[in-house]
């Protein structure tokens, strides 16, 4: 059933990462991404790799499931590896066969790229998407970006749209399923024929879905007006995000991680790209 798809890939839990402030986690994600790209030497990459897997362990997420989740990225990794392996020219030739030349530098680049991609995806999802509920995430973005309101960027409206979208994903998924069933019951054939035939077969599903979404939007807007909604001005929140000492500690840990990358790059410049 489509309904059972885990939304936003959030895994509920109680680890340090789960409990820290979503705003802090957004900041940490940014810091993390920056330092992933700053790693240059072998030891910096090793440090990055170790740090990312420590995060995974600290988060107490089901490691097997998370690693399985990397499957879709394998393709990208494979392509990067092939490009780096065959197209990098260097001095230390390892292998030669007709027009294929593999240099030591190529192998090194390939390994670095694997680490970089894996850490980037694993790290950001462990810090943010796997451990933060979509609702908290939206709140975090809204409150973190709220200074932008001063320069007339509609931060509140954006966050409101996001949270309504989140709220309606399961509803619309269910509705799509219902409409598909209704049309199948009238003999609609959704699974055979060429591309054009299949695209045409979607019309009986997309039109009702579109019509009903408009109706829902209309009713929701009325309901929101009835509940005194009039934009972000003068609005308070039940839950105010508060930084806790936990967040500070986490921040220091990430600062140490960043410093480590820089120091390793500078002081042990072994196999630098």
């Amino acid at each position: 059933m489509m309904r059972d798809i885990t939304l936003g890939q959030y895994f509920p839990g109680t680890s340090v990462l789960h409990r820290s402030d979503p705003r802090m986690k957004l900041i940490l994600t940014l810091i993390f991404i920056v330092f992933v790209f700053l790693a240059k030497s072998l030891w910096a990459y090793v440090w990055l790799f170790v740090f990312t897997f420590s995060l995974l362990i600290v988060s107490r997420l089901p490691v097997k499931v998370i690693l399985k989740g990397l499957k879709p990225v394998l393709f990208i990794i494979a392509i990067t590896v092939i490009f780096n392996l065959f197209l990098t020219k260097g001095e230390d030739l390892l292998f030669e066969c007709k027009f294929i030349h593999i240099y030591f530098e190529g192998v090194m680049f390939a390994v670095y790229m694997i680490i970089r991609i894996v850490c980037l995806i694993l790290g950001t999802s462990v810090i943010l998407t796997y451990t933060t509920s979509p609702v908290d995430l939206t709140d975090g973005i809204e409150q973190l970006l709220s200074p932008l309101k001063k320069i007339k960027i509609p931060v509140h409206e954006f966050a409101m749209m996001m949270s309504i979208a989140l709220r309606f994903i399961p509803t619309l998924t269910e509705e799509t399923e219902k409409i598909m069933n209704a049309q199948k019951a009238r003999g609609a054939d959704l699974s055979s024929g060429g591309l054009i035939k299949r695209a045409k077969a979607l019309i009986p599903i997309l039109i009702p879905l579109f019509v009903s979404s408009l109706r829902r939007a209309d009713e929701l807007a009325t309901a929101m007006e009835c509940r005194c909604y009039r934009g972000g001005d003068g609005r308070t929140r039940m839950k105010r995000l508060k930084y806790s000492p936990r967040d500070l500690v986490l921040f220091l840990v990430f600062a140490a991680f960043g410093t480590g990358i820089i120091l390793l790059n500078i002081f042990i410049p072994y196999l630098v790209i």
Partner: peptide
């Protein structure tokens, strides 16, 4: 089978297109 056993789902008015 679906032509022989016709099913009208709940709130079927939402399937018109």
């Amino acid at each position: 089978v679906r032509f022989k056993v016709g099913l009208v789902m709940q709130y079927p008015e939402y399937q018109l297109f």
